[in-house]
C-alpha cells in the first residue's frame, strides 16, 4: 500500500497519495483572482506555473480559518489550502469512501485518527461542477465600474 500525505482541514483528517502530490508549500505569496468565487483563494507561482489555490474548508461547504499550508496536486493542476500537514503515513484498515463526499475515495486509519483519502480526479470534477454553478458571480459588493 502506497505512502500517503496526511493533512488536517478543520477537525477532519484527509490523505493524498504521495504520487498525486507535487509539492507542499507554506504561506507562499498568494495573488488575488478578481471576481473569483470565495473558495478560490487566489493563484500562486509554482516553478513558473500559475496554480489556482482552493480553500479546502470552503470547498467542503464549511467556514473557518484559512489554512496556510498549500498542497499542490500533481495532475489536477490545482492546490489545496489546508490547516496542517502531518507528513507521510501508511494507510491501514482501508474502507470504501464516497459516502460523505463523492471525491473521497477511501477511508483509512492513520496514526492521528480516521482520515479520508482524496481522489484528485473526483475533486476536480466536483470543483468544475461547483464553478459551473457559480459561473455568474455574485454582483453584490462589486464596484460600479466593473461590468456585469
Amino acid at each position: 500500500m502506497g505512502r500517503t500525505l496526511l493533512m488536517g482541514s478543520g477537525r477532519a483528517l484527509f490523505g493524498l497519495n504521495v504520487k498525486e502530490v507535487r509539492e507542499v508549500l507554506k504561506a507562499p505569496p498568494l495573488h488575488y483572482v478578481p471576481l473569483a468565487p470565495a473558495m478560490l483563494l487566489g493563484a500562486i507561482n509554482v516553478h513558473d506555473a500559475v496554480v489556482p489555490v482552493f480553500d479546502f474548508l470552503q470547498l467542503r461547504g464549511l467556514q473557518g480559518e484559512v489554512g496556510e499550508h498549500i498542497v499542490v496536486l500533481q495532475g489536477a493542476c490545482m492546490a489545496l489550502a489546508v490547516n496542517a500537514v502531518h507528513g507521510l503515513c501508511s494507510r491501514t484498515i482501508v474502507l470504501p469512501g464516497g459516502i460523505a463526499y463523492p471525491w473521497m475515495r477511501e477511508v483509512f486509519i492513520s496514526a492521528r485518527g480516521l482520515a479520508g483519502l482524496i481522489d484528485p480526479v473526483g475533486l476536480q470534477q466536483t470543483l468544475e461542477q461547483k464553478l459551473s454553478s457559480t459561473r455568474n458571480p455574485p454582483t453584490e459588493g462589486l464596484p460600479d465600474w466593473i461590468g456585469r
Binding site: 502506497g2 505512502r3 500525505l5 504521495v18 504520487k19 502530490v21 507535487r22 509539492e23 507542499v24 508549500l25 507554506k26 500533481q74 500537514v85 507528513g87 507521510l88
Partner: peptide
C-alpha cells in the same frame, strides 16, 4: 526547522514518487 521539515517532506514526496 519548519522549512527544513517542509523540504524534507517534499523530498520524501519526491522520493516516494
Amino acid at each position: 526547522s519548519q522549512k527544513t521539515n517542509l523540504l524534507a517532506l517534499n523530498a520524501s514526496i519526491e522520493a516516494a514518487r
